[in-house]
């Protein structure tokens, strides 16, 4: 593959890398696993890049490949220990904004989302990314109505996890 292609890919990926980081955050626990998945997604994006024609936005295309990798292709390595390390998250918050109770609730929510299965995580991810149901349905290959129904069920499930 030509160097030009490589250069434009690396540049676009560097600019859009948070898409991948956010997927890694939902699908992995621990720094090693995060890096592992990030690398696999990057490789898959690069492999699919020659087919990316630019008729959609780089980010829209990247969402699909990245989610597909996390749900379908990625093999969890043995190195990743399933401990949840949300405590170490860096927050960029102003002192004024700081609300202890709210902060605690957010932590619990991340933990609850981590307990969902891979498909449910994908729906939550796209929901958090403000994707509409049409795009969610198109990415996963399900109907729009059922995507909506499923999202409501997930909300119920999360409620149950939070208040057992």
């Amino acid at each position: 593959m030509s160097e030009n292609l490589e250069h434009s890919f690396v540049k676009q990926l560097q600019e859009n890398q948070n898409i991948i980081h956010k997927i890694c955050r939902l699908y992995t626990a621990g720094e090693d696993a995060h890096k592992d998945l990030f690398q696999e997604i990057t490789i898959q994006l690069w492999k699919a890049y020659p087919k990316f024609r630019g008729d959609s936005k780089f980010s829209t295309w990247a969402y699909r490949v990245a989610l597909n990798t996390a749900i379908t292709l990625y093999r969890k390595s043995k190195r990743s220990v399933p401990t949840i390390e949300f405590e170490g998250r860096n927050h960029f918050m102003n002192e004024v904004d700081y609300n202890y109770e709210e902060e605690e609730q957010i932590k619990l929510m991340y933990k609850a989302v981590y307990l969902l299965n891979d498909i449910e995580k994908a729906l939550v991810y796209m929901y958090l990314e403000d994707k509409d149901y049409q795009e969610i349905a198109e990415t996963l290959g399900i109907s729009e109505v059922n995507a909506r129904v499923k999202m409501n069920r997930i909300k119920g499930k999360l409620k149950k996890i939070l208040n057992p």
């Binding site: 690396v10 540049k11 560097q14 890398q17 948070n18 980081h21 956010k22 955050r25 990030f38 998250r89 860096n90 927050h91 960029f92 918050m93 709210e102 609730q105 957010i106 619990l108 929510m109 991340y110 989302v113 929901y127 958090l128 990314e129 403000d130 909300k155 999360l158 409620k159 939070l162």
Partner: peptide, 21 residues
């Protein structure tokens, strides 16, 4: 809670250690 999470999700957008080119 999900709305709260969404708010935080957006806020922490730039908290990831950036990978260089």
């Amino acid at each position: 809670e999900l709305d709260l999470l969404k708010k935080d999700w957006k806020k922490t957008e730039n908290s990831f250690e950036q990978i260089s080119e």
